[in-house]
Design a protein around this nucleic acid. Structure first.
Lengths: 343, 343
DNA sequence: CTGAAAGCGCTTACAG
DNA sequence: CTGAAAGCGCTTACAG
């Protein structure tokens, strides 16, 4: 393997000055078409590859961005990170990835570290509601973009799944199936993703002139056992609930388990929509649960793309939403779901 | 925010030459203790941070490595990648991540791209058995380390989970529980992970003087429906099988579903051990399935650590194994498992 | 449209 | 032990 050709090698071989070669190859500045063609042809012949480091050195751009995750090893963060870093890689940008692993102190240490490094921009992955203040207080001198599995609108650059749209779609799907007593079993109040899904759901219900069963959203947690408890409450209430939008698949599974135990069939008696597509990846003849795939790696890609745009001087602050993919499953259109089907 | 201090600033402020400052800060070359102390003190006062890019430029080391995945978005690759890149980030190394998304052509394109980039090393994530030839044929001039969810020993630098050890542990666990007719339901022959798990299992059985039930490992696929089929075969055979080591959790689930349908209780009648810890992340009172967590993010970290060692001139080729974590669940020690428990 | 020259911030022979 | 100087491979005013 011979030594790599440098731009000087190309210039010499093409019979032009280094300056001209740089201009011909870089595309900036005026060069005659013939000269440019000659230089480019020579560069290709010599298999010239610009040295990114030398380029960085002189331009000040490092072609490296920081990727800071609040908890990278989580189920939701991993696809975001992989989507983002792969997008960056395709654009020839390297990433310094740091995982705070849920510890605020570590997050701050890493933030400090990234601040003192020459990076072109920072991607923050996570859902901490205080993230904005946290980062802005660190006074970053490079663009910062947030990628989240959920997000409240802010003055920052944010990319997030469209939880509100999913909530709307869920309601419309169930209404379209002829269900008339639709409940919403969700997690904790004031959690951004919860609020957004509930808002979309409520909107669509109102638009159809329908009231939410059980007097409004039932708040609890994201755990499966909250689903089982909620189902008991719904059964005990005696309301003729015939459909439920659950804030995530775990709740949906809990609901289903309890209904099944009581001989209530899904979807025949009660249709259920979940969220997260937790069962993805397990090969099955058909999808058991009607749910939404948040397409988190697409969110990560979008966020990376946006970061590069902002680094390039473009773009406007605000939230950009990525639509979750609606997954049609047996829990709303049948045939009747059995526990075996969701294992 | 004022401009960052350069090494010249430090040298001037400390009253020494740039050369001396570099030596004092870099730790190489002889400098008097007092001079060194003075320079270091000055550097700290000025909050001097060396410019990695300038350093790269002159040393030739880029402090960037390539991370090439055969299919980054897969369930197994994501934790490997996140573990590896986070480790690299902590060591202040950036990563250019590229995901071939299962396409050999893309893999080769990316390989070519990485080859022409100034990277210090390459981490290949994936399980393609032909990977070695593939990469070596590309004649990489920098160290290459492989991180896999499985791997056959090679002359390369490889980090992988200890499938063989897990197979041994599975057998020993079941034997220790007093089971006497233990079968092994696995996936395709000659798949490295399958072979390794089967080898470990067979070893431990032989060591205990026991024969594998059903005449030896039953080969099929990694799909859940193979588990259901295998259970039917075992039931039809009429052998008094009282325990099964399944090559993965999907097979284990399929086995369990069929046994449950036939009124065969798990673990009372038949104990089952799986592999992958697929149900991790769903919060439950106890683990339903006895299985192994391959700790893939730890495998990724180990691989990254090893890559840096090799880049630094150390280390020996060969496979380094990371022990999967044994997860004790109800499928081997009870109480009796119900379908609701594994949803 | 083209070229000679400076300079980005470091490291490292070379000389003292 | 210390310093003046060259050089890593590019980009970009500046001059022609």
């Amino acid at each position: 393997m011979t030594k790599r050709a440098s731009m000087s090698d190309v210039a010499r071989a093409a019979g032009v000055s280094l300056t001209t070669a740089s201009r011909a190859l870089g595309g900036v500045g005026r060069v005659s078409p013939e000269t440019r063609a000659k230089v480019i042809e020579t560069a290709e012949r010599l298999q010239f590859q610009p040295d990114m480091i030398a380029r960085s050195f002189v331009t000040g751009r490092s072609f490296i961005v920081g990727v800071l995750a609040e908890a990278a090893r989580g189920r939701f963060s991993m696809p975001l990170i992989v989507g983002a870093t792969d997008y960056l890689g395709r654009e020839n940008i390297a990433a310094v990835t740091l995982d705070a692993r849920g510890t605020p102190r570590r997050l701050n240490d890493y933030l400090k570290r990234l601040r003192s490094r020459r990076i072109d921009g920072l991607l923050v992955v996570g859902d901490d509601p205080n993230r904005a203040s946290l980062v802005l207080s660190e006074d970053f001198s490079v663009p910062v973009v947030f990628a989240s599995s959920s997000a409240t609108p802010e003055t920052d650059y944010v990319v997030a799944p469209d939880n509100r749209g999913a909530g709307r779609t869920a309601a419309e799907h169930l209404i379209g199936l002829g269900r008339r007593n639709i409940a919403h079993v969700t997690a904790a109040v004031h959690e951004p993703a919860v609020d957004a899904r509930a808002a979309g759901f409520t909107e669509a219900m109102a638009a159809a002139g329908m009231r939410i069963a059980m007097g409004g959203p039932l708040y609890g947690s994201y755990l499966q056992r909250w689903g089982t408890d909620a189902a008991e409450r719904i059964i005990a209430a005696g309301e003729p609930v015939d459909a439920i939008f659950a804030a995530n698949d775990e709740i949906a599974m809990g609901l289903f388990a309890t209904f099944h135990r009581h001989g209530i069939r899904v979807p025949d008696d009660i249709a259920i929509v979940g969220y997260d597509n937790r069962l993805a990846g397990v090969q099955r003849p058909d999808d058991p649960l009607t749910t939404f795939d948040p397409e988190l790696s697409a969110v990560g890609e979008k966020a990376a793309e946006r970061l590069l745009t902002v680094i390039g001087g473009g773009g406007q602050p605000g939230v950009e939403y990525v639509a979750p993919r609606f997954v049609l499953g047996r829990s709303t259109v049948g045939p009747t779901l059995e526990p075996y089907d969701v294992m």
